[in-house]
Amino acid sequence: MDWNAILITTVKASIGLETVVYALAAIGVNIQFGYAGLLNFGQAAFLGVAAYGMAVTVATFHLPFWLGIAIGLAATIVLAFLLGIPTLRLRADYLAIVTIAAAEIVRLVFRSVKFSSVFGGSDGRQNFSGDFFAMNPYAPGTYGIGPISFNERVTWILTVGWVLIAICCGLVYLLMKSPWGRVLKAIREDEDAVRSLGKNVFSYKMQALVLGGLVGCLGGFLFALGQASVQPDLFSTEFTFYAYTIVILGGAARVFSPVVGAAIFWVLLVFVGNTLSEAVSAGLLPSLFTVNNIGAVRFMLVGLGLMLLLIFRPQGIFGDKREIALDAR
């Protein structure tokens, strides 16, 4: 067993691209679900339209990179309004149903044969990240501490990613301490009460949906740029459910919980996965486990761990136990 290699990849995973992307998606979910109580099960679609908006603009139409970003942001806002206008006046579960369906529609349109000249079908789009890496201030080489280091491209994308996470966390912190955040949290508790106090509930829910979508869509840009390609199946519904898992793992309605949750989630996945594969190749596990099925086994083990967490610490890592106790009343 090569514990050194396991440890290095695990530490790298804690700040790696996946952690950054999922942290941004989860910050968005935390705004919508954690603070405003909106069940948006289509977060993957917000990342998808942003990533594709940018990639298609640059790769298919050969337009400038920043225009691509602008189109990605605009597409996210349009999607939020499309989903929100018919459903935010209705009960919460309608939004959940509509968003989960919309996310699948978006993904299937991206991978459809009909539009493959635009979206590239199931292969997606490549060759759009040139301008982004042309802005890279890091000279070629590796950056980091000892074995935990990345090449200049990864360093650049992680730098941008963690700066964006810091900005988003600062934004959430400021907003949720303000009267605006108070209205959002009140809507989560009981929207009729908030209406009776003269607040336009629909408008606040829409603002939360758009804001959460926009934060998530930053993750979409980074996902596409970091891999230098987009494929439709990156944005399947399980992406959204991982984001929810991360929020609940960290503790809903806490500023840093999506970030810490994302890091723990990926550290667990990578650590369990690598340990299993090392153990299999060292012949330490029964023959039931093979190189082919440990990928599934690691999700089972991480799932088991999350179940135990929710049983013994239902408020998540940062949550307040008193709040959970209120629900039982």
Binding site: K177, R188, D327
Partner: peptide, 30 residues
């Protein structure tokens, strides 16, 4: 309809009208 996970004081503050901080952009400037 008490807003359970808000404190009593936050419940009260919510009732006030024409709050400047309830606007998204002004909320960012405490």
């Amino acid at each position: 309809k008490a807003l359970s996970k808000l404190t009593v004081m936050e419940n009260m503050r919510l009732g006030a009208q024409n709050q400047r901080g309830e606007n998204f952009f002004r909320a960012l400037v405490p």
